[in-house]
Amino acid sequence: MRFKGNTIGYLFILPAVAVMATLVGYPIVYNIILSFQDVTLMNLGSGAKSFIGLDHYKQIFSDELFMKALWQTVYYSVASIILQFVIGFALALFFSLNFKLASYLRGLMMVTWLVPLTVAALLFQFMLSPSVGVLNYLPMELGILSEPIAWLSDTNYALWGLILTNVWIGIPFNMLLIATGINSLLKEVFESAQIDGANWFQRFVKITLPMLRPVLLIVLMLGMIYTFKVFDLVFVMTNGGPANSTEVLSTLSYRYSFDHFNFGLGASVANVLFLILLVIAFFYIKMTRDDEVIE
């Protein structure tokens, strides 16, 4: 039954739309305008801001630091996602086996996904410490490392210190979504393949992978979107350092806006980041078109 009088419908939606238009819609538009203006702390309150067209965009694309941050964002995201995805996939397969504690244990792992990023950052900063960190102590005891690595203060390793932390946070997300996909696979297909004498590996390549393809692509794209906009982890653990070796687009944008108070330049970096995410989101939405939400 669809109600004929739609006034109540509009009234019910109004608060949500009003809040979101003010706190999300308006900032998106304002940020685009900001990026074309020369806005500093001085003229922030007054109306006297000069339009400078595409100058900020020209500036950032010829800026070495921006290109470095862009590259590091890509590197961080791709490395994180490969690791999270492979480990998450393996765990999803393992926990899809038929044993008593499987779903309980799998659920338990989700707790790390809800831990505040600031806390995860703090915790890994401790565990990665060259003097007292267990992630140096254990590999050394096992003979994998001969001397401690200054994970977060060595320019060669700092980005990997962040990747490691992000992988820990992201595994349950990948695992849960892939597990949901596996559960919806037809059990009969598996069983008939077993009768046909296909071994574990053949079943995986010929049946599991192709059938899971849509789910796997969605997980990869969502993971990409959430990883690419990383902010809190980097901000707390290294704040882009040492020597900009962990600078990513979001921290660079924040630095321009709130350390240098060059709001226009910060806005242009944020917009480039947003645009990249929108491109990924476009493919994501195209893929999930059958989904009822965007029917």
Partner: peptide
């Protein structure tokens, strides 16, 4: 999907 940094300054 929007990065937080987009809305902070506005």
């Amino acid at each position: 999907m929007m990065p937080t940094t987009v809305s902070l300054a506005p």
